[in-house]
Design a protein around this nucleic acid. Structure first.
Lengths: 183, 183
DNA sequence: ATCATTTTGTAAACAGGTTCACAATTAGTG
DNA sequence: CACTAATTGTGAACCTGTTTACAAAATGAT
């Protein structure tokens, strides 16, 4: 029956030992670093799975939902603007919009002033979807987080923010432009 | 010049307000829930970017590195076993192994006893790669985590583990089998 | 032994990403 | 004005993953 049902967490947790199993002289907290890395990875992936499942009955994918969410705040964005906000390439947005247009959620209209640009608008169907999706996603979100107290949440968020800041430094470092990042 | 350079964090952080901007009666900590969700999402994605970049000069991708890592612990796994451990479908592993075989990192050999199975073995080249990759990845890992104290790391890990546990419940719940998950 | 079931891997068609290369259209500079 | 720059979107080729459907081989129960 192919019961894949993602996660046998054990398999992944085990693999944390992989990198340290031969007594190389690595920082002594590498182990927990890796555990933390796996946790991040797992939680992120599982969140995606759960949200995807909540979205499926609504006939839309997570990526498409993001586009809808941004358009619902600011209808008529250009594809380039969407790409920047969603942190995807223009090509990715192009394909995404292709499929969403085929699905009838959005439509492309030529910009009047700029003949290069094509602005993306929610259709009636798209507008109607947004509210429903938003509710479903919020509910899932709240459920997931119901197991942690607000205090611990703050603490963990602080740690994640530190890590994120370091990651931004790392990513921004050897990349010529470097003016792009802003918290 | 297309300075995409992933992350304008602001854009994503902003979008946290999207879901709550119309005064629906949602739990009052939904906001921080969403912030946390975004943080997880961002950190996970950025970690991927950074690790990918460390791996690129070594001529291998992150997914392929995972396969190598598992094989280095247990050479000659079947594709099905790899799929289970890596939490991917057999099909995904099939394609992955195709490309890695083409790249000369691994080779398929028929199982002697089971004519269906094809076991995957590291080639010499693959074996040689593993050590180098491991070092590179460990270094990046250590760098990323260098900004947090061990104590906070423990705290954050605890929170993530709670969340992960809840996610496993959610995923396992409406999925007939349900016997699959184990921490 | 046979026959149904499970297991192993593949193929095809799709969604979602990437990079690189490109045409068209602005926009800026002389 | 003319020419170069930058910007907007696409196309092609690729990697990674999914689901669905399937052939082949192994297992198990009768």
């Amino acid at each position: 029956m192919e019961t894949r049902l993602p996660l046998d967490a054990r398999a992944i947790a085990d693999s944390a030992e992989v990198s340290t199993s031969e007594g190389k002289s690595v920082p002594k907290n590498l182990d927990s670093n890796l555990r933390f890395g796996f946790l991040i990875h797992d939680v992120s992936r599982m969140r995606r799975i759960v949200v995807d499942r909540a979205l499926k009955p609504l006939g839309i994918t997570r990526s498409q939902w993001w586009v809808l969410a941004f358009l619902s705040r600011r209808d008529g964005m250009t594809q380039t603007a969407l790409a920047a906000d969603l942190d995807l390439t223009k090509v990715a947005i192009g394909g995404l919009v292709d499929r969403m247009e085929a699905g009838g959620f959005v439509e492309r209209r030529a910009d009047e002033r700029d003949a290069r640009a094509r602005r993306i608008y929610l259709t009636k169907a798209g507008q109607k979807l947004v509210a429903a999706i938003r509710e479903a996603v919020d509910a899932v979100e709240a459920d997931i987080m119901s197991v942690v107290e607000d205090e611990e949440l703050e603490g963990a968020s602080g740690v994640l923010l530190k890590v994120k800041t370091r990651l931004i430094e790392l990513i921004g470092s050897d990349a010529e432009g470097a003016g792009d990042i802003e918290m």
